[in-house]
Design a protein around this nucleic acid. Structure first.
Lengths: 141, 141
DNA sequence: TATAAGTTTGAAATCATTTTTATTTTCAAG
DNA sequence: CTTGAAAATAAAAATGATTTCAAACTTATA
């Protein structure tokens, strides 16, 4: 998790600019929301949450922004749940666990031997997505 | 890879029955096709291929069958490509690599320390899906 | 053979995402 | 300051994969 106090407009704007993305109000809002999220919101959740403060916001803009941030490697699109795509700010590389009971998606931090893989069978690896399914500790008691 | 000679109707039927799935002609056809596939076919590819031999086949049946086989743990639905879902018969647990150049999806066999994870942070893990992105050995030369 | 249960089919509906087009904003050049 | 082009946003319409639904068919069973 990120320190919430760190998530200022300046800080978020700097992240965007470093990746060559113009820090518009909408983009700042979407990324800031993602960084503050403890869960992994869907497009719809992001849209509904931000709409409260930004009544003119269009869902298209949320889609555009998330696609752009994904291309730039700032966020990841999670396909762990087959009903909707979830988005996640990449603070530190990690895996995910979907609880088949409650549906919650947890962050799971594996040791470096997993995330450090750069080559397999002669293929060059640039990105890894590790999704577990199972029963979370809250549900199996 | 499976030995192609092993993929007989009797053998495929046995796999279905063991999981409590009635081995109808359509289900046998779909599973047999998946077992013989060297790549990871989409619903559409499966449908088109089987339609040649089974002209009455409905796409709904392909969807129904794949959903059923996935529920029963006989096949996996791969969300590695964001345009379409790919299906894969689970012969031996393995990871996948999507080549960002040619789009091909490779099977990647990791050692048991990966697939053997049964518990993390108190959560019980029943299933793991590991998807890599990168450049395959054919493309980075 | 009759009946019920399970399976398949094809059409229609759904729904997330993309495309398209129009409007607005940004920002550099004059 | 204006002006005008480029970029960003908005809203509506289109797309397309997947699901739902009702009817037809098949299979198993009494």
């Amino acid at each position: 998790m990120m320190d919430p106090n760190q998530i200022t407009t300046e800080y978020v704007g700097k992240i965007l600019e470093e990746k060559g993305v113009k820090p518009s109000f909408q983009r700042l809002s979407v990324l800031k929301y993602l960084m503050k999220s403890k869960n992994h919101p869907s497009v719809d959740k992001i849209f509904k949450a931000l709409s409260q403060d930004i009544p003119t916001l269009s869902k298209t803009t949320v889609y555009n922004t998330l696609n752009l941030l994904t291309e730039k490697g700032i966020v990841t699109a999670l396909n762990i749940n087959d009903t909707e795509v979830l988005y996640d700010y990449i603070f530190k590389p990690h895996a995910h666990l979907l609880c088949t009971e409650c549906g919650h998606v947890y962050d799971v931090f594996l040791d470096d031997s997993f995330s450090g893989i750069k080559e397999i069978d002669g293929h060059i690896i640039s990105e890894a997505q590790i999704n577990f399914k199972g029963v979370c500790k809250k549900c199996h008691n």
